[in-house]
């Protein structure tokens, strides 16, 4: 399988945060969700990929090319959708497009017009008059109109209503009908990724916790709930994010066999969502367990 993006031993230190030697890769033809709580390093990683921040060490290659040496070519082939608005507020949609379009070698005006219509964007509206959902759609229209092969999205669906989010997911499905394209989708809202994502990379406190297929992740993990008497030290060392109260405990088992042994002992086993998994792994209560 060819990788559209590869990150190796990437490191970046700030005063109060370190992205610590992270490595992961993105196969083409798939949607990869990049999940983690706020402040876990998602945006830092994305900024490093775009060379908007200077890395301390490590390697990043996009389409098999070094991201700094071939920065210009790479940027031509990437579409970027940001969580914050990065357009000039006072310009109209049409004016903004005229600023952006010449930056791309493969700009396709027909395609842009098609998406403007498809997304219900009006060319004469000022950027500042667009709703959040419309701004995201405008970013998507730009990305799709220069035939981006890799779409990198930083929290694209946060703050959007369910209808718009669902529309955006449909756009992504359309994009990956072409198996040479890929999507890198960072989010702390995991419900969008529960269905659409093929791969999940989870980052926490600047470290990659895991990088695997979503199916494997959801099948391997189980939520375990039961009475406190089940939590002897031997059993509980295999649990993640244990939360106890007067009525019992709940925790995550990272292995089906662990869940099965708890079930035998009388615990209840539930299927987790991505959000559950994220929550148990990053729970602070871990310290007191």
């Amino acid at each position: 399988m060819e990788n559209i993006l590869e990150v190796k031993n990437l490191k970046k230190s700030f005063k109060d945060f370190t992205l610590n030697n992270i490595s992961f890769s993105l196969p083409k033809g798939y949607i990869t969700g990049f999940i983690g709580p706020n402040g876990s390093g998602k945006t830092t990683t994305i900024k490093l990929i775009f060379n908007l921040l200077k890395k301390d060490s490590g390697e990043i290659s996009v389409f098999g090319l070094d991201n700094i040496v071939h920065e210009k070519e790479i940027k031509n082939r990437i579409g970027f959708v940001y969580d914050e608005n990065h357009f000039y507020e006072e310009l109209t949609v049409e004016e903004m497009k005229r600023v952006i379009a010449p930056l791309y070698q493969k700009w396709d005006e027909e395609q842009f017009k098609y998406y403007m219509k498809e997304f219900g964007l009006s060319p004469n509206k000022k950027i500042k008059e667009l709703s959040r959902g419309m701004k995201v759609k405008f970013s998507l229209a730009i990305a799709l109109s220069h035939h981006a092969e890799l779409l990198i999205m930083d929290e694209p669906t946060s703050g959007l209503d369910p209808m718009v989010r669902s529309e955006i997911l449909d756009i992504l499905y359309n994009l990956i009908q072409d198996e040479n394209k890929g999507v890198f989708f960072s989010s702390h809202i995991t419900s969008d990724l529960d269905r659409i994502a093929d791969y999940i990379i989870m980052i926490h406190k600047g470290e990659i916790l895991f990088s695997t297929t979503k199916e494997e992740l959801l099948e391997r993990h189980a939520i375990v709930k039961g009475s406190l008497s089940l939590l002897n030290s031997d059993m509980s060392k295999n649990l993640i994010g244990i939360r106890k109260n007067d009525y019992g405990f709940d925790a995550l088992a990272a292995d089906n066999r662990v869940a099965a042994s708890f079930k035998k002992a009388g615990a209840i086993i539930d299927k987790p969502t991505l959000e559950d998994i994220l929550l148990y792994y990053t729970r602070k209560e871990n310290r007191y367990a």
Partner: peptide, 12 residues
């Protein structure tokens, strides 16, 4: 890929 799109599930 088209089945994944229509059923709203992942390609994998």
């Amino acid at each position: 890929r088209s089945l994944a799109k229509d059923l709203h599930i992942s390609v994998i």
